[in-house]
Write a protein that binds this DNA or RNA. Structure first.
Lengths: 221, 221, 221, 221
DNA sequence: GATGAATGAGAATTCATTCAT
DNA sequence: TATGAATGAATTCTCATTCAT
């Protein structure tokens, strides 16, 4: 039931390093890729390290030369994703000249990332045992926190009315993940349409929000 | 680390049955309660049947007189919750005379339920192993589907503009769960404020949504 | 997979006792009958007490009013069989006027018993887990021992030549059980033909046996 | 109560393989040997995988690197025995020029095998829980079938009179196992005497058997 | 006596991780 | 560094037996 082994695609960007280095990097990537597929298919709980390495030409012991534990490889997947998307999202929002750009830039970037990185998204967000999973690594929490800070900055700059930034962040995230999920279930993942839907919702909604500051404790999200 | 055993509260509503019956009902409830606490604390993946039964004065074998597996007890918790809230939500939406009543009724009912039923909500929605969990039992999927159908009915009645009901459902659910989570983290769970926030967001937002029917396959949500 | 409950046949011979007594005897017989069928189908190892009482209208606790353990009920089945057949076999051999009567009486009686009491025979002799089982209760060992003594008596009386009685007993028993098994597998259990085969074999064979006394320790079989 | 761990005898025939291979082969043999002893002492039903592994310096999980279950190791023991003796028996019978050679060759080979391989024989044939066990693996059934076919061939060649080959096979097997059992209980296992006894019995007996073909279904034994 | 739920020791098995080669 | 067998703690689950009703 776990995915079969698939011959690794040689990566052009590995050419320059020494052979040793190269193999090491390749093995690491192999394991990550295998883990992504296995987690996506079986879910974190049900997946075993053996499932992962079985999808690989490597031996089980080799796994531990690259990752200290099953959890570490899971976190690596998450962080890799979060690390790649966080700066993009932040940049998008930083350069926003209007609330519209802020919102639509966030959603567009997110949905495009999800569509192009479906395996990662699924590995993190999906789970078999009848359960769906969401993430909580340091990287991701930091990403949430950053969004909230960006919202507060936008309020300070007068770009946004003084709404509850904590709740607004939550609403943005809830909508982003839930719509992403729905989008991926459709025949054709129309990132534009999805982003437009979400943007319209928030553009219309934000104006109507009660103008009160957040009641959440400011420091820890 | 799993919660300690806590003396069960004697229930007045058990007076009428025979002692045998009463003990059975109590034991079942004991196990459910223990499971709720253990899932909330450790998450579904990390929790073991032993953790659950240890939180109880019962013997390990007794668990299996009531539930066939960890999964079954988890589903029982989910279904119990969903079974209790689904009719309330549906009723609220059915009697709505306006879009405002539809949206605000839904959120208000949901946040009140969550606040009063925190243990259940946490057992289902939270998860430690670095993961958070969301629900996918038949009952809950049915609840989602029902919301979508209620939205479609509202569109047909002209209560709502002809928006993508599948996406709107997803947005409502994403916001509901994510705000609930945030609400519970605050010192005082202000269900009114939370419902107002969510309602305002959608009341403003819905008007702005693109007027197109859902692109999702209509039958299976 | 274990046999279904079958309404008990009321036994005429229970009429005379008091109602209490009667029920007790009936329950005992019910359990024995159920055990016979369950052991025959699943084998002693795989059969559980629950399997047995499930085949009965009784409750699990009731089992222990009649038998102290699973083993005890198994022994009761064995002893019941052995107790019923032993005197018949012994009598048959005691009244034998010739070696022919001795041998043929033994086999005929045994095969008829087996054919009429197939459930008992199977309960004792068969076993699923891929295994076949033979019996070793006190009653049965006593039966083997009795056969050996009867052989020795026959030798003393000059009915039989002075052969190794221990080995002859073993040969008789081996042939008896193995042929019984084969006989029951055939479409029609022809006890006469089977007895004739076995008798002919031994009638011819005994004459040819080396005339030496048994080398086995005489006391314990 | 299960046997204690006994230091393994270093095998000369393992010299050539690599250390890894060697250890693997040794461990497998260790487990088999332990299983033989445990089955012989406790019987198949009562023996547990834990009993087997405890008799070994290995860890419990290691058992499952070699055998999938208790049943599998039991079958391995049986098949190992059957695999070793079957060709010898068949060969013995094939080269028989007379009925005497056929019968005596069979018994002599069998009793010698049993005496030299007592642990295996006991592991398979003995059983405590009040039960004795006989074997039914594919290998062994095939061995029985082969005996029957050899008998039929002998009949066709005129070596044997046209008797019921199925019953004759059963009688040979019953006598072989039952005498083997008795033989092992004696102070000194005299395979010659035992084989002579059995041979004499059948040599005399076969001549007396009714001359009819088998009534058993020919295909499956 | 009958009932059937509770008990808890113990079985089989899994699997993350270690470690000798 | 790669290998893959060994490890053994931990888990799920069964079931003979007990015991309150």
């Amino acid at each position: 039931m776990p995915p079969e082994y698939i011959e690794p695609i040689p990566r052009a960007d590995l050419h320059l390093k020494g052979k040793r280095e190269q193999t090491k990097a390749q093995n690491r990537e192999m394991i990550l890729e295998a883990a992504r597929r296995v987690f996506a298919e079986l879910g974190y709980g049900a997946a075993t390290v053996r499932d992962i390495i079985r999808t690989t030409p490597l031996a089980s012991g080799t796994f531990y030369n690259y990752f200290r534990s099953k959890e570490e490889v899971f976190q690596a997947i998450q962080d890799e994703s979060a690390l790649r998307i966080r700066p993009r999202l932040h940049e998008e929002r930083a350069k926003a000249q209007s609330i519209e750009e802020f919102i639509s830039g966030t959603f567009r970037t997110f949905f495009e990332f999800v569509a192009n990185d479906e395996a990662n998204f699924r590995a993190i967000h999906r789970n078999t045992d009848t359960l769906r999973v969401r993430m909580d690594t340091a990287e991701i929490i930091a990403g949430f926190q950053e969004l909230r800070e960006d919202l507060e900055t936008a309020i300070a700059k007068g770009l946004l009315p003084p709404v509850d930034a904590d709740f607004l962040m939550a609403a943005l995230i809830g909508v982003a993940f839930e719509l992403a999920e729905r989008m991926l279930r459709r025949e054709f993942a129309d990132t534009n349409a999805t982003a437009e839907f979400a943007t319209a919702l928030f553009m219309g909604g934000i104006r109507a929000l009660p103008n009160v500051p957040s009641l959440a404790p400011p420091a820890n999200a």
